[in-house]
Simulated scan of single mutants.
Amino acid sequence: MTNRIAIILGLLIVGAIVVDAMFFGTEHLIFLAKKMLELMEWIAFWR
Results as ranks from 00 to 15, higher is better:
residue 1 M to H: 08
residue 2 T to G: 15
residue 2 T to A: 04
residue 2 T to R: 03
residue 2 T to Q: 03
residue 3 N to C: 04
residue 3 N to D: 13
residue 3 N to K: 12
residue 4 R to N: 14
residue 5 I to M: 09
residue 5 I to P: 00
residue 6 A to D: 06
residue 6 A to I: 01
residue 6 A to Q: 10
residue 8 I to A: 05
residue 8 I to G: 01
residue 10 G to K: 01
residue 10 G to T: 05
residue 10 G to A: 10
residue 11 L to F: 03
residue 11 L to R: 00
residue 12 L to T: 01
residue 12 L to V: 04
residue 13 I to F: 08
residue 13 I to K: 01
residue 13 I to E: 02
residue 13 I to C: 06
residue 14 V to N: 00
residue 14 V to M: 01
residue 14 V to Y: 00
residue 14 V to Q: 00
residue 14 V to W: 00
residue 14 V to K: 00
residue 14 V to R: 00
residue 15 G to E: 01
residue 17 I to Y: 07
residue 17 I to M: 08
residue 17 I to F: 08
residue 18 V to T: 02
residue 18 V to P: 01
residue 18 V to K: 01
residue 19 V to F: 08
residue 19 V to R: 08
residue 19 V to Q: 04
residue 19 V to W: 13
residue 20 D to E: 14
residue 20 D to K: 02
residue 20 D to G: 09
residue 21 A to R: 03
residue 21 A to Y: 03
residue 21 A to I: 06
residue 22 M to Y: 15
residue 22 M to R: 13
residue 23 F to E: 11
residue 24 F to Q: 10
residue 24 F to E: 11
residue 25 G to K: 01
residue 25 G to P: 02
residue 26 T to P: 01
residue 26 T to L: 14
residue 26 T to I: 15
residue 26 T to D: 04
residue 27 E to W: 15
residue 27 E to C: 10
residue 27 E to L: 15
residue 27 E to R: 15
residue 28 H to E: 14
residue 28 H to I: 12
residue 29 L to Q: 14
residue 29 L to V: 05
residue 29 L to A: 05
residue 29 L to R: 09
residue 30 I to H: 10
residue 30 I to Q: 14
residue 31 F to Y: 13
residue 31 F to G: 11
residue 32 L to R: 15
residue 32 L to G: 12
residue 32 L to A: 14
residue 32 L to I: 13
residue 33 A to Y: 14
residue 33 A to H: 02
residue 33 A to C: 13
residue 33 A to V: 05
residue 33 A to N: 08
residue 34 K to C: 12
residue 35 K to A: 12
residue 36 M to C: 07
residue 37 L to M: 13
residue 37 L to F: 14
residue 37 L to S: 11
residue 37 L to Y: 11
residue 37 L to G: 06
residue 37 L to V: 15
residue 39 L to R: 08
residue 39 L to I: 07
residue 41 E to I: 10
residue 42 W to Q: 08
residue 42 W to I: 04
residue 42 W to L: 08
residue 43 I to W: 04
residue 43 I to Q: 08
residue 43 I to M: 09
residue 43 I to C: 08
residue 44 A to W: 09
residue 44 A to M: 11
residue 45 F to D: 11
residue 46 W to R: 06
residue 46 W to E: 06
